[in-house]
């Protein structure tokens, strides 16, 4: 059932020009960024070779690109998640889902998976770009894997947040704006943190993304993102139930 809903959502995204534009722009920007990091790497290469433990090409280029993608894809999450429920409310199509023999949890999970499926496309393309470094040198596959895992987990948390905010209003723009502000706030918690161990920094998903992307794949960081995502999805299904109560 979740698969049916996710597949429908995935196809609906492709029915909008917005999704194609997002894919094209993200891919274009990411290619530019990737190339920029690569040229930067060659520029600093003579200097860093003096170091005792110089950063490798994977760390500089892949790490940099994935971090940039984490910031850039926030915009994609905002634009793609804002319609997920708002449009259903506005067009009254939500009645179709609510009258069908499916639970609110299935509805929320279905939509979430559909959005994630779409977001995996730019992530996959970025991973392929990163893997292409192997054509000309030695890459740290483990680090690429860590970056990939970190980005996917970060996007699940962001998507779940976008989904929740979309389930609160029938106005897609309001939902989009709300998600955007929430994501900017969470990002600033990390970027503006003077003390890396501050609580505010700990609350930012971006902080956990960075730690995992560095290769520090520990339970604390993984479970933070997983718990945030799960909580937001549970809340979304509760909101759907509540709408049934309030009408």
């Amino acid at each position: 059932m979740i698969r049916t809903l996710a597949w429908k959502e995935f196809r609906t995204l492709f029915a909008q020009p917005l999704a194609w534009v997002i894919l094209a722009v993200v891919q274009f920007v990411m290619a530019m960024v990737f190339f920029w990091y690569l040229s930067q790497y060659f520029e600093i290469l003579p200097r860093i070779q003096q170091l005792a433990n110089p950063p490798g090409v994977t760390e500089v280029v892949v790490g940099g690109s994935f971090y940039f993608a984490a910031i850039l894809l926030q915009v994609a999450v905002v634009l793609l998640s804002m319609r997920l429920f708002s449009d259903e409310y506005r067009n009254r199509t939500i009645a179709l889902l609510l009258s069908a023999p499916i639970s609110s949890t299935e509805i929320a999970l279905g939509k979430f998976c559909g959005l994630m499926l779409f977001l995996l496309i730019p992530v996959a393309l970025l991973t392929i770009m990163s893997a292409s470094l192997a054509l000309g040198g030695v890459v740290d596959w483990g680090l690429i894997g860590a970056n990939l895992l970190a980005l996917v987990l970060l996007l699940t948390a962001y998507s779940a947040l976008g989904l929740l905010i979309s389930s609160l209003t029938a106005h897609p723009l309001l939902a989009g704006f709300g998600t955007f502000m929430a994501l900017v706030f969470l990002m600033l918690l990390n970027i503006l943190a003077t003390d890396p161990n501050a609580t505010s920094n700990y609350l930012s998903p971006l902080n956990h993304f960075e730690t995992i992307a560095k290769g520090l794949i520990d339970t604390a960081n993984l479970s933070f993102l997983v718990i945030v995502t799960t909580t937001l999805l549970v809340l979304t299904s509760k909101i759907l139930d509540r709408r049934r109560m309030q009408g």
Partner: peptide, 8 residues
């Protein structure tokens, strides 16, 4: 209001 997905 018929619950129809117009893009399908």
């Amino acid at each position: 209001t018929p619950p129809l997905y117009r893009e399908m």
